[in-house]
């Protein structure tokens, strides 16, 4: 009798544990899609800071979940024929190569007991990816740059129907080689930190190749899955994927990003997004301070880490908020 009771209690404990991980995935998917940074960027800090998950297992679970969300949303986007699969595959040469280099860099960092570096790198990448994401809302179509030789050789022209502008937008990409360079780094970061690094991919196609924002975001979304598949297979061999953890987060993140996408369409008050950006920047700073603490170079208590992280993120978001508001006001007047 007591034995059965104990077994039941044990099962209940595991179930609660499972549900709590799914909830973390749900939160990550929700925040990731509301801010446009992707689920993994939120999942790794949540798991490693608050769930006591070793960071390599957090990156493994995150990379798996990234494939699931990428495939889920890319399925919807490719049907609308906005994502440019041709450009995506050309750029995947660089991201997949980068992912291999990144995964092995993580392995060597792990072997050298320098995982605190990953915390700091993760925090910094998170904070820097917020800049292009916040700025993104400012313009839809790129300014015209004449086609160059790569436009012709790599067939970078395309068109899509924009339902909001109610017209077919013709576009062409330029400077393919710059795109490839940025994409190598995007792949490297993806393999190193277990995230989709969508922000970097968007930068590659937006800044370097001058593609319209809609094409950039949807193509990047489709590419994220391929990059993450490369990293995940190497992670698997290295033993960085914990099946129980990865399956719980995959389920959570898929559900979370589904609801996030629905919520985003209904969100009329766009300024509420600043709250999400504030949470994200808190996670970024907290990762940086946790990394510093783990390095044993400077000793900071958990309480101080959190306090510093809150102060810095509030300051950062306040500055960004007023800066963007100022720019918008200026544009309206001009």
């Amino acid at each position: 009798m007591i034995l059965i009771f104990q077994t039941m209690l044990g099962l209940l404990g595991v179930l609660i544990n499972f549900i709590s991980i799914v909830v973390a995935g749900l939160l990550a998917g929700l925040l990731g899609s509301l801010t446009g940074l992707g689920g993994g960027t939120v999942l790794v800090p949540l798991l490693s800071l608050f769930y006591g998950v070793p960071i390599i297992l957090a990156t493994g679970a995150s990379l798996i979940s990234t494939i699931a969300t990428s495939a889920g949303s890319a399925s919807a986007y490719t049907k609308q024929k906005i994502a440019n699969i041709k450009i995506g595959i050309g750029l995947e040469m660089a991201t997949t190569t980068g992912a291999i280099v990144g995964s092995f860099t993580l392995y060597f960092i792990d072997r050298a007991n320098l995982l605190w570096v990953i915390f700091i790198a993760f925090g910094s990448v998170l904070l820097f990816s917020m800049i292009p994401t916040i700025k993104r809302s400012m313009s839809e179509l790129p300014k015209h740059i004449p086609p160059d030789w790569t436009t012709r050789v790599f067939q970078l022209s395309g068109s899509y129907y924009d339902s909001r502008l109610r017209k077919t937008v013709e576009y062409h990409g330029v400077r393919w080689y710059y795109g490839e360079i940025v994409m190598f780094f995007a792949g490297f970061i993806s393999g190193l930190l277990g995230i989709g690094s969508g922000a970097l991919k968007v930068m590659g196609m937006d800044w370097a190749m001058n593609l319209p924002m809609k094409v950039t975001t949807t193509t990047s979304n489709f590419m994220i899955g391929i990059t993450a598949a490369t990293g995940s297979s190497i992670y698997w061999r290295l033993g960085y994927i914990q099946p129980f953890l990865a399956s719980a987060t995959a389920i959570g993140v898929v559900l979370g990003s589904y609801f996030g996408a629905k919520l985003l369409m209904r969100l009329t008050n766009k300024e509420i997004r600043w709250v999400f950006f504030a949470i994200l920047s808190f996670l970024g700073w907290d990762m940086v301070f946790r990394g510093i603490a783990y390095s044993n170079i400077v000793i900071i208590s958990i309480f101080l880490q959190t306090t510093y992280a809150i102060l810095l993120s509030v300051t950062m978001i306040a500055i960004a908020f007023y800066w963007i508001k100022g720019v918008r006001k200026h544009e309206r007047l001009g």
Binding site: G10, G239, P243, F244
Partner: peptide
């Protein structure tokens, strides 16, 4: 996994431990 309570020689509690890397893809 929940029904059987074990897999591949590992107990459910070992498999569901996420704070150490015992039962991983390795």
């Amino acid at each position: 996994l929940f029904v059987k309570g074990h897999a591949d020689g590992y107990s459910l509690s070992q498999i569901s431990t996420i704070t150490s890397n015992k039962v991983t893809s390795g």
